Amino acid sequence: MKTSHSSFVLILLFSALLAGCAAVPSAKQVPTAFDMAKQNYLKRAAEAEGKGELVEALKFYKLALTVDPEDTQGRAALTRVETALNEAALRHYEAGIKLRENGNYNLARKEFLTALRLKPDYNDAYKMLTDKTHVVTKKFIVHVVKPGESISKLAQMYYGDYRKFPVIAAFNGLGDAADVKAGQQIRIPSVDGLEPSAPDAMKSGEIKETFEIIEPSDDEFFAFTEQKDQPLKDAKREKQEERDQVAGYRDYALELFQQKKYEEAAAELDKVLAAMPEDQTAREYAYKAHFESALRLFEEKDYIAARDKFKTSLSYKTDCQKCHSYIRQCEDSYKEFHYRNGMKLFQDQHVQEALLEWEMVAALDPSYKRTPQMIEKAKTIIKKLEELKKSR
């Protein structure tokens, strides 16, 4: 009789649990850990998009779709942001073209770099920075700038075409074609298809030998001159080109940092340090950018992402005691948040969802509080409920 009574009580218990589970909304309606992660990513993406931080928004929309590839809201938002980024990249690219045509090479480079940041696979912008062919030249003419003269006037004087001023500007390493002063010596190069015609200069014998001109595209050249007995090596030239490009990324990253766009600044600085790990300025700002980005994530309760950012910050400054402290706080907060969430779900009879929360805690710290016991209890209940379902 005692055994029969115990069996009856057990059946009542599991019937109650089954009833509780039957009252639970379907899996799509229950806020699982994955649902919460997706909603968090969508929220952060929308906030970034609202602030005009489209690169950041794109990242979080992609993360949300990684969690749930079928989410129509996230898919539509991703398409919207990608379209906006492509349009913005095109505007910066076209601005760069205009600046380059006007001889503002440094500003043009920033525009091309911005276009690449907005659209990393923008081949036209990339070619403006890296696509180079070579043209050999044997001579140039030295011209001393007189008051009122400009590079375009020199192009008209020597080439008969003021539009050829980029050749002279680039050959002389001028970041801004308008930046010339009276008394300054300017070299007028002779290149294939472009021979300077200046009888007076020719007669004065002011013809020098030069080494090589680099032609990135169209009629714009970059020249490197050396003495006869000191030819410029290809490796040296390529190294300088790399340094110039890296410097562009660093300058742009520092601008982003000053604008408090820490996540974007950190990404650019990581590129710089991958190419030039000895750059101390980039290293210092990479530490600061990752640290500030981590603080934001911590405040938003995205503890694991914050922890990883603090670890990256620590890699750039190994004596950062604050980084060690925050890494511990991130892990402790993460464990406590998911442990408590699991307890709440369990009390509300969402046993499967509670188990997922505790397993997340166990992945970080298997012995945290009563996590092992709660996991075992949840698995036992789920197993017995499944057995009861099959027996019905």
Score class of each variant (00 low, 15 high):
Leu116Val: 06
Leu118Val: 02
Ala363Pro: 05
Lys127Gly: 10
Arg370Gln: 12
Asp179Ala: 14
Phe346Gln: 07
Asp251Glu: 08
Lys146Trp: 03
Gly148Ser: 05
Lys59Phe: 10
His92Gln: 10
Glu376Val: 11
Glu331Thr: 09
Gln373Gly: 08
Gln349Thr: 14
Pro372Met: 00
Thr3Leu: 13
Arg80Ser: 07
Asn40Leu: 08
Glu215Thr: 14
His324Ala: 13
Val55Cys: 09
Lys390Pro: 14
Ala19Asn: 12
Pro216Tyr: 08
Ser15Cys: 13
Lys43Ile: 02
Lys383Cys: 06
Ala22Gln: 15
Thr83Trp: 12
Ala125Met: 04
Val9Gly: 11
Lys164Cys: 04
Asn102Ile: 02
Gln240Pro: 03
Arg243Phe: 06
Asp302Thr: 04
Ala363Gly: 11
Leu269Ile: 00
Arg117Trp: 09
Ala45Tyr: 08
Val180Glu: 00
Val191Cys: 10
Ala76Tyr: 07
Lys389Gln: 14
Asp131Thr: 09
Gly248Glu: 01
Gly52Val: 02
Lys208Trp: 12
His290Met: 00
Glu387Leu: 09
Ile214Asp: 12
Glu336Phe: 09
Tyr41Arg: 11
Phe140Ala: 12
Ile151Ser: 08
Phe221Ile: 07
Asp218Cys: 11
Glu278Lys: 14
Ser197Lys: 15
Gly205Ala: 03
Asp121Ala: 04
Met343Pro: 10
Pro216Glu: 00
Gln185Glu: 12
Leu13Ser: 13
Lys390Glu: 10
Ala48Thr: 05
Glu209Ser: 12
Arg100Cys: 01
Gln349Phe: 15
Tyr316Ser: 02
Lys203Ile: 10
Ala95Gly: 11
Gln280Ser: 13
Gly96Pro: 03
Asp244Ile: 08
Lys127Ile: 00
Phe171Lys: 01
Gln373Tyr: 07
Gly52Arg: 02
Leu42Met: 07
Glu49Ser: 15
Asp319Lys: 10
Pro277Trp: 00
